[in-house]
Nucleic acid binder design. Sequence first.
RNA 1: GGAGGGGUGGCAGAGUGGUUGAUUGCGUCGGUUUCGAAAACCGAUUUGCUCGAAAGGGUAACGGGGGUUCGAAUCCCCCCCCCUCCGCCA
Length: 441
Amino acid sequence: MLDIKLIRDNPDAVKAGLANRNADTDVIDEVLALDTTWREKLGDAEQQQSALNKANKAFGPWMGARKKNPEMPAPAELVELLGETPSDPETAKEKLRLLGEQKDKVENEAAAILNQIEGLLLHLPNIPHKDAPVGKSEDENVVRKEWGTKPEFGFEPKAHWDLVGDKGLDLEIGGRISGSGFPFLRGKIAKLERALINFFLELHTSEHAYTECWTPFMVRSETLRNSSQLPKFYDDLYRADERDDLFLIPTAEVPLTSVHAGEIIPDDQAPIRYCAFTPCFRREAGAAGKDTRGILRVHQFSKVELMVVTTPERSEAEHETLTRCAETVLERLNIPHRRLELCTGDMGFGAQRCFDLEAWAPGVGKWLEVSSCSNFGDFQARRAKIRVRGDDKKVRLAHTLNGSGLAVPRTMIAILENNQQADGTIKIPEALQPFYGAEVL
RNA sequence: GGAGGGGUGGCAGAGUGGUUGAUUGCGUCGGUUUCGAAAACCGAUUUGCUCGAAAGGGUAACGGGGGUUCGAAUCCCCCCCCCUCCGCCA
């Protein structure tokens, strides 16, 4: 969520940022107008409340005093508020009740407006970081680096769906059980899936400083709002059913981001780094008919996620570190890949800056996104109320970051397609062999 | 699913309608004392919103949301979470 104070103080900068993201900017004027009214009503209500509080505070002692002396006059606070000396407590009560109703009315009006403002803010994306390249669409993303060399084959490389039909990737059975986009794996491919998950986790926990987590795979709507999937992306989520407020997680980012929700973390405990394997469930509502073949785009997939909570001062450095951790996975697996910096028009809703890692897949002849490493700034922290406290005791919003490390299916595609041999077998990358238990698949 | 107990400040733990944002203890920070430290003593120690240039003022919060009342941490209703026991089931 954007900072209402930033919008107040610097509406033009906010609009410019939103415009770079191809987002609507008129809503900012709407928010500003509502905000002005809200603050007027709030001040009004609080002033009335203040007067009522003073009178109420004096009321009890007055009642007590009247027990000893029924002639005890009403206290000055009460007289001041009512503008007259009440004849008896019952009359005073009635008048206070009416004043309270007046106050409630204004208070409710203010609350309704605040609600409206929040509704608008919840649908606004983050403002891009000043260093993020400005651009309209994915065509303007910037390649920051390329690693490895694309393999040369003495034959026409096959796409993964033609490579492993006999090795246990069974899309039809998945379809029979659950529908399209739910791959069924058995035998060697099932084992390869497990090997990749273990390899990822082992690398990030043993060599990188991430704490392994095991999270719930279903979460409440509140948890999804914290990390900004809700309210805007409801259609992309699987919901358990209407009896429970539970959704299937689209990524481990969701449960991990809420681990420290509501907390104030001392600066010296930052950065807090977590990683977790989870299945990810996505309806892919907006992508129907796109990348339908093989396991390019599926409704359920495995992923190991990296997530960081840190101070505003450290977040940029952490962003680079996190991205490097994800890149290391690809390097160890010897997969040709590149790092893309997303332009303002292509970044995800909550990101202020984002690097995508793309693995080369020679069979399908495409770069495949296997990781998206984002710095959210304080965008998620504001929703989740995650804060940090410095040596000077000052409290400020934390920064959150996350990235895949990595998504399994597309990494698997890259391994299969890059390491295919003329005889139809696939060489297992050396780093993965201890986890897979063989050199060839 | 059934029965019961409970959710209060960093922690522990009081508080059942009126100067209680909240007794007290611990912890933490500062000071006195000391060559230094411990102990002792003194003081400080939540966060949000809002008004204000600032100083400072106002307001809100005792799991969450409603209600009763002139007034709610305290009474009523709904929901969530934790604990114990029973049932059921990996």
